[in-house]
Design a protein around this nucleic acid. Structure first.
Lengths: 340, 340
DNA sequence: GTGAAAGCGCTAACAT
DNA sequence: ATGTTAGCGCTTTCAC
């Protein structure tokens, strides 16, 4: 059974394809009676428009590309959900792409999205790939950066102030008497990873504490890597003269890996080692111990991203302002107060 | 700056558009020298194919529709990730759609996907909408059912044996001495919700325990509804003569809501009330108490789904076998043994 | 208010 | 090995 085309509807209803198209688009006056007859034919033939043909003519795909490291990260899946919720009713669909933090894959994704003529791309870039984004905007594709800024002035950004929040979180640890703080870092290429590390460093410096490169462990924003590397690090570090008393995890996924490593080493949080996380754990309310963290305002982030995307799709409003979402320090029970 | 077309490449390179197309598709012999010249022109013009035009001709979109209740549910986002991982290299992209368990929305989604000429749809149906799926298969769209079967014999299915697993989980509670077991159910229209309830009933019956409709509380597979309705139910129930001693949650999201309700009522698990869950919690390893559950083999499910999808896309292999994934009973510390 | 016809960018059958 | 051309299904200009 072949799909009915506008021509079939034309033949069945006796009107020209032009009129069918007008009924379909509803952007042109058509006699009521005519419309009804056509609607009937559409119904009987179970006709539905071919998007490819339509896109080809109109140069609009009604597709939004969402490019993130991993859709399996609740941080991103929440954004995905929100955008879909807000844009489905407007006729858009969401094309989800995972970079896996690979710069090379990101390139291929962006190229594919360009081929597919997506109307907009919402992206949390794996790397600072400015040229590619520029190419896309030149070709008319609207872009919204989330989570990871790139300092491109004419592209709107929605995300956290990673430097400041990270500094706040580190300062909290210092306040509680911690001086040797292990830092589990993200991917080198992500600007957030750099900013979070800078925030940590800045807090140390301001408190006259020595930054020690050896205490920085790479976790690549991945649970598994964080687990392995934390396990190895702690195994050695805890035997040393001045072991770390706390761990700073620079994202939610790695925090889980770190907790697993701590469990495996038969350590208790916070009695044996303290832990803070940049980014809350999903369903954190029911996790024991409650991890002290920078709680990212994901609801707000998702909402702003949706708004920015809608604006970006609107030819008349080209709002290129950035939107820095304020996060909050949420005190849990994962940090031991060493001052007592 | 307008996007370059195949015609531009033709003009720049001096070859006909056919030859360009052949170089692009690589399915036809082209002289090496010619190819190189053309590649150069493609590069210089930063040309990339227009998918709409291509789809229109070939009737292939290289799009896979993924239709689930909520991409924010880790169960589904893991599947999404796996499919994307496996299919991106083959040139496919994933169109993610959320039904929010709404039958009406599902209809609109399927209609949109049909318009977009998706090559295949991977769907966990919100309702038993057989006619619509039939329409799609008639039009040549390949379909893979996940999670929720519909008893359509010629459409492949990948998912759990909900009835049996649910029975096993209920039997475990009975073994531990529980007789009054609250059941938090999913959406009426989802077959999994029915099967899980049937499994629960069957276990009760086989153990000569009375099924009591009053102990079934609707949670609609949603965290928030489960939270509210459990809270209300427990508030009344615990004052009654014979209060429930255990709760059976029929999915992972609701389990979180239920735990929240329990916390709010200042009850302890398992001392005051026991809890089991159909479907594990995400990062369950680090949650206290560890919830006894049917641990769904999501890795395997995702893997099988990917395989089935690849098969479905292949015209030569039309494998319509179902693939029932074996889950496992994972004993945690959330159930009190009443026999002691 | 309605219709005829051009053409979006590409692929593939046919021709050379 | 390369080119010519028809046409996928739709929107849109122009004509009536």
């Amino acid at each position: 059974m072949q799909k009915a085309t506008i021509k079939d509807v034309s033949e069945r209803s006796g009107f020209s394809i032009t009129t069918i198209s007008r009924v379909l688009n509803g952007n042109y006056p058509v006699k009521k009676e005519t419309r009804e007859k056509i609607m009937k034919a559409i119904d009987e033939l179970n006709f539905s428009r071919n998007s490819s043909a339509r896109n080809l003519r109109t140069k609009k795909s009604n597709l939004i590309g969402l490019v993130v490291a991993d859709i399996n990260n609740p941080y991103y899946s929440k954004i995905a959900k929100k955008i879909d919720d807000g844009l489905f009713e407007k006729g858009y669909n969401l094309l989800v792409c995972n970079t896996d933090e690979s710069e090379e894959k990101e390139k291929r994704i962006l190229s594919t999205l360009q081929d597919k003529d997506v109307d907009a791309i919402v992206i949390s870039p794996a790397a600072k790939n400015i040229e590619l984004l520029r190419q896309l905007t030149d070709a008319g594709t609207r872009i919204v950066l989330i989570d990871r800024n790139m300092g491109i002035l004419d592209i709107p950004f929605v995300g956290s102030d990673n430097f400041s929040e990270s500094k706040i979180l580190t300062e909290y640890l210092i306040q509680q008497g911690h001086q040797k703080i292990m830092f589990v870092s993200g991917t080198d290429k992500a600007i957030t990873a750099q900013d979070r590390l800078f925030g940590y460093k800045a807090a140390l410096e301001e408190n006259n504490l020595q930054f020690d490169e050896k205490n920085v462990v790479k976790g690549y924003y991945k649970q598994e890597d964080a687990y392995k590397n934390t396990y190895t690090f702690l195994t050695n570090n805890l035997k040393s003269d001045e072991p770390c008393t706390a761990i700073f995890s620079s994202n939610n996924l790695m925090t889980i890996g770190i907790i697993q490593a701590i469990h495996e080493l038969n350590l208790r949080i916070p009695q044996d080692i303290s832990l803070v996380s940049f980014g809350q754990l999903d369903s954190q309310e029911i996790i024991e111990p409650k991890v002290t963290c920078i709680k990212q305002n994901i609801e707000q982030l998702a909402k702003s991203t949706l708004e920015k995307t809608i604006e970006a799709l609107d030819d008349n409003k080209s709002n290129i302002d950035s939107n820095i979402i304020r996060d909050s320090l949420e005190i849990g029970t994962s940090v031991k107060n060493l001052n007592k």
